[in-house]
């Protein structure tokens, strides 16, 4: 464990908590893409299948349980509990264009042709593009609530910090995983536009508005 990975996990956890609280407290999922949350639930499910078979540490197991539980709770709130507030008309990104290519790619490019490894690889590829429906929805509605932009910032920063974690691990542990690094780079690049708007607007107290 190193500081970058720890801060990354904290940032990821806080993004998940921010979103859960926003929906629960405001009893509304307006402006939130249910499709992205569905993709995240798939990402965690396919990545943490070894949750019960491969104990690494209490921290690792407990974080995995929290991630999986909270992603399902978020999907449940969007599609069931508060579905009346779900803005389906603006959440129109075709997720099959994300799931199919990443699934095919995980069969072609992986470290080991075994079910667990292919599912892990699929989850890494899918995570790198899972935020697209949400970013697409924000660009369609032309703006996002401030709390939603904080959620997106925390979520984007988590993988950016993981990039530094991989530099650290390459330097000091002679470890690197090219699949995770390339997917992490793609994931971070997708946020760049949003990072720019967040830093130039939201941090100055303005509302986040994307050129529609």
């Amino acid at each position: 464990m190193n500081i970058f990975r720890f801060l990354g996990d904290i940032s990821h956890l806080s993004a998940i908590i921010i979103l859960l609280l926003k929906i629960w407290k405001s009893r509304s999922c307006a402006g939130i893409s249910g499709k992205s949350q569905l993709l995240f639930a798939i990402v965690f499910t396919t990545r943490y299948l070894d949750l019960f078979t491969n104990f690494i540490s209490f921290y690792n197991t407990s974080m995995k349980v929290v991630y999986v539980a909270s992603s399902y709770a978020t999907v449940w709130m969007i599609y069931s509990k508060f579905k009346a507030t779900y803005d389906g008309n603006h959440d129109t990104f075709r997720v099959e264009f994300l799931i199919v290519p990443t699934a095919i790619l995980s069969f072609l490019v992986n470290h080991d042709f075994t079910p667990l490894e292919i599912l892990w690889t699929f989850s890494i590829y899918l995570e790198s593009v899972a935020i697209l429906p949400q970013l697409f929805m924000v660009s369609k509605t032309g703006e996002a609530e401030t709390i939603t932009s904080h959620y997106l910032f925390a979520l984007g920063i988590y993988r950016t910090l993981y990039l530094f974690n991989w530099i650290w691990r390459y330097q000091f542990e002679e470890f690197f995983d090219l699949i995770a690094i390339v997917a992490g780079l793609v994931q971070t690049v997708l946020y760049c536009d949003f990072f720019y708007l967040y830093i130039t607007k939201v941090l100055k107290g303005k509302k986040l508005s994307l050129p529609a």
Binding site: D9, N54, F175
Partner: peptide, 10 residues
């Protein structure tokens, strides 16, 4: 091998 270490990440 190397790759197994990676699986300690979330």
């Amino acid at each position: 091998e190397l790759d197994d270490i990676g699986k300690d990440e979330l």
